[in-house]
Design a protein around this nucleic acid. Structure first.
Lengths: 221, 221
DNA sequence: TGCCTAATGTACGAACCGGTACGTTAGTCA
DNA sequence: TGACTAACGTACCGGTTCGTACATTAGGCA
C-alpha cells in the first residue's frame, strides 16, 4: 500500500525502521487476506519482505499482534476516507445516495479489507476487542448519516423513525456482501457480482433501494 | 445435527457406517465453523467423535474433502428448506415479504452455515468448484422469486425490470451480513445485530426495504 | 458355522511452523 | 573516533498436525 520501491542496495544492510515496519504490514495484509489468519504463514510474510522473520517479532511481538496491527491500519484507511466525505451541501436525497455510492466504491476498491473483516468475524472480533485503538475510533460516516437523516426527516422528505446505525448496516450489508460473497454467489448462481460491466447497475440498485426505503410510506408499528 | 445419541456400548466395538459418517460430519461442521478451514484440527474433530481420525480418512479421504462434504450437507439443508417454501398462494407483495422473512429466519437459525460460507469465500469457493453436487444444485428460492416477481410485474404492483437473482442478492446480503458481521459490527458500533430484542425490528426492516424497492417509482435508465 | 471383507483401532512419522537464542552491524552522538 | 544501542540476520528448537502403515474385529452371507 505505502511501500516505497527502493532498489535493494547490494552488499549493504539498510536500516530504516519505519520502512521495514510498513513493508511488513503491507505484505502481512496481503498474506492474511489471501489465506485467513491460520492459513497465513509468518515465514511466507517474512520471505516476501526485504527483511527477516526476526523483525516481525521485533516490531510486532507475534502473529496475533501482527494481525491486530494489520486490522488497525486497514480500519484507519477507511476512517480517513470517511473523513473526506463531503455530501452535506446536497439535499438529503442526493446526499444519502452519494454517501451510499461512496461506500459502494470504497468496498469495491478494497477487497483485501473486506476479507480481513470477514476473517476477523470468523474469530469473533477478538483482535478488535484487544485493540484500544480500534475500540476507540468511531465512524465518521455514521455521523454524516445521522445529520442527513435528521435533516431529511425534519423536512418531511424521509419517513420518520429510521435509525442511523440501521441505515449504515443496510448500506454496508449490500456493499460488503457483493464483495465478500462474490465467489460462492458466482459459483452457485453463475453471476459475478463484481463484474465491471454490472458495476453501474448494482451501484444504482443500491441507491434506489436506500432511497425507496427512506421515502416509502409505512404502516405504523 | 442428525446424530443419534446412542449410549456408548462398553466393551463392544460398534459397526455402523452411516452413523459414523454422519457423526463425523456433525462434529466437523462445528469445528470448521468454529475455527475456519486452517484453524480446524482433524485431531480435534476425531476426539469429539465416538470414532478415530483413521475413520475420517477412511470415509472422506482428507481434510479438504471433509470440508467439501460439510459444505455439501450444509447447502443441502438450506435447499430442503427452500423446497418447502409455500408462499405463492399469497398476493405478490405479501409473498415477497414472507419469502424475505423466511430467508431471515433461516440465516438466523443457522449461524454455522453462514460461517462456513464466509470461510468458503475466503478460499475463493474452491471447494464448491470441486464438488459436482454443489455445482449442480440450483436454488429453489430463486425459482419462487422469479415467479412472484413476474406475477407482481404483470399486475403492475411491482416496478418493472427487477431481476430475480439481483433481488435474491439483496435479500441475502441483509440476512447474511447481520449474522456474518455480527462481531465486528457489534465491536465497532456497539450494537448487536442478532440481539433477540431487536429481531422483529430487523425482520420488519428487511421486508420494508424489499417492498419499498419493488414498489418505488424510478427514473428510467 | 466358518469365512471374507467392510469397518475400525493403534501407533507412529515426517514435515511444518511459530517462536527464540545468540551473534552482528549500521548509524548516531558524546 | 570510539562507543553505545537500535536495528538486523542466522540458525535452530520443540511442539503440532496431517496423514498412513499395520493390526484387528464385527457381522453378513455362502
Amino acid at each position: 500500500m505505502t511501500s516505497v520501491d527502493e532498489p535493494a542496495r547490494p552488499g549493504g544492510r539498510i536500516r530504516d525502521a519505519a520502512r521495514t515496519r510498513a513493508e511488513i504490514l503491507d505484505v502481512a495484509t496481503q498474506e492474511f487476506a489471501r489465506a485467513g489468519y491460520d492459513g497465513a504463514r509468518v515465514d511466507e510474510i517474512a520471505a516476501r519482505t526485504r527483511t527477516t522473520k526476526r523483525m516481525i517479532y521485533y516490531y510486532f511481538g507475534g502473529k496475533e499482534q501482527l494481525f491486530t496491527a494489520v486490522l488497525e491500519r486497514a480500519y484507519g484507511v477507511i476512517r480517513e476516507a470517511e473523513q473526506k466525505l463531503d455530501v452535506e451541501h446536497l439535499d438529503p436525497v442526493a446526499a444519502i445516495r452519494r454517501l451510499a455510492e461512496l461506500t459502494f466504491d470504497h468496498h469495491e476498491q478494497h477487497p483485501d479489507f473486506i476479507r480481513l473483516v470477514s476473517i476477523e468475524n470468523i474469530h469473533g472480533a477478538e483482535h478488535i476487542a484487544a485493540s484500544e485503538e480500534l475500540a476507540r475510533i468511531g465512524s465518521p460516516a455514521l455521523d454524516v448519516i445521522r445529520r442527513i437523516l435528521a435533516q431529511g426527516q425534519e423536512s418531511g422528505l424521509f419517513t420518520a423513525g429510521v435509525d442511523a446505525v440501521d441505515l449504515h448496516a443496510m448500506i454496508s450489508s449490500f456493499c460488503f456482501f457483493r464483495v465478500s460473497n462474490r465467489h460462492t454467489f458466482g459459483a452457485l448462481f453463475g453471476r459475478d457480482l463484481v463484474d465491471p460491466a454490472q458495476r453501474e447497475h448494482y451501484r444504482t440498485m443500491l441507491g434506489d433501494m436506500v432511497i425507496a426505503y427512506l421515502t416509502a410510506e409505512r404502516a405504523a408499528d
